[in-house]
């Protein structure tokens, strides 16, 4: 018992003050890209051609955050002259088309369905479905339950049964072998229900786009309400999206 108390004192109180107080991530973190639309077209084309995810549209000088894995190659190649990743982790959107961006995203809070806020604003129970990703999205979702983030203090919980859930949170590009399980789990959640696509995989197939063994985008199977980009999304990206969309 003495050891428990000693450790408790050493650990102290570690829960983040976010969102009441802003939190800043280390300068190397790659969040919302800043795009210079006046950039030389040749440089833009170099970035677009080199992008492993083919996420850059050279014509419109936009980047698709649903495809982007935030590897930072375009920033390196353009020396920051075309794309520079900021430390802004607030990336969630309600409309998929908003993910193709020139460097800004709409305020998520204003695009939420109002009845969701009313229904789930005080209590939201989610069933997580891991569907053929790499387990990084799952790991950084799980982290929200640790004391630093302490998701439960916002009334949001991940539950074991779809019957107890208000919605599903899907990660991964949905393999052919998980398709049936994703649909059954979705159907087992009582209506009205929410669908969240988290990570580049569930939005666009992510690193695995083009594989015959995956569905690629959750939206083609079931209608999605909230998109959380990233590979994987930073826990704060997920936290921000959940709080702004539902609170």
């Amino acid at each position: 018992m003495y050891e428990v108390i000693k450790n408790r004192l050493e650990q102290g109180h570690r829960t983040s003050k976010y969102p009441k107080e802003p939190i800043s991530l280390y300068k190397r973190f790659r969040g919302l890209p800043r795009i210079d639309s006046n950039c030389d077209q040749a440089l833009v084309k170099l970035c677009a051609d080199s992008c492993p995810q083919d996420a850059i549209d050279a014509q419109s000088k936009k980047i698709d955050l649903g495809r982007c894995v935030f590897c930072g190659l375009c920033e390196t190649l353009s020396g920051g002259k075309f794309i520079q990743f900021s430390q802004n982790f607030e990336l969630g959107v309600a409309n998929k088309s908003d993910l193709l961006t020139g460097g800004s995203l709409p305020e998520l809070a204003e695009h939420s369905k109002k009845h969701f806020k009313k229904l789930f604003g005080r209590s939201l129970q989610l069933r997580q479905i891991s569907a053929a990703g790499c387990n990084a999205c799952e790991a950084d979702t799980n982290v929200l339950n640790t004391p630093f983030f302490d998701l439960a203090r916002f009334g949001i919980q991940f539950v074991a049964s779809p019957r107890h859930a208000d919605g599903i949170h899907v990660t991964g590009p949905i393999s052919r072998n998980m398709k049936a399980a994703v649909i059954s789990t979705f159907e087992a959640v009582p209506s009205p229900k929410v669908v969240i696509a988290s990570g580049a995989c569930s939005i666009s197939g992510g690193p695995f786009y083009g594989s015959d063994e995956i569905v690629g985008d959750l939206d083609s199977l079931i209608p999605v309400d909230l998109y959380i980009p990233g590979c994987p999304p930073h826990p704060l990206t997920t936290l921000h999206a959940l709080l702004n969309y539902f609170k």
């Binding site: 991530l25 280390y26 190397r28 973190f29 790659r30 590897c71 930072g72 590979c231 994987p232």
Partner: peptide, 19 residues
């Protein structure tokens, strides 16, 4: 565990060492 992931983020900008 998260603190160690953040150390990887200091090295290369991603908690999992992406990129």
């Amino acid at each position: 565990r998260g603190e160690y992931l953040n150390l990887t983020q200091i090295l290369g900008g991603s908690r999992f060492g992406r990129g």
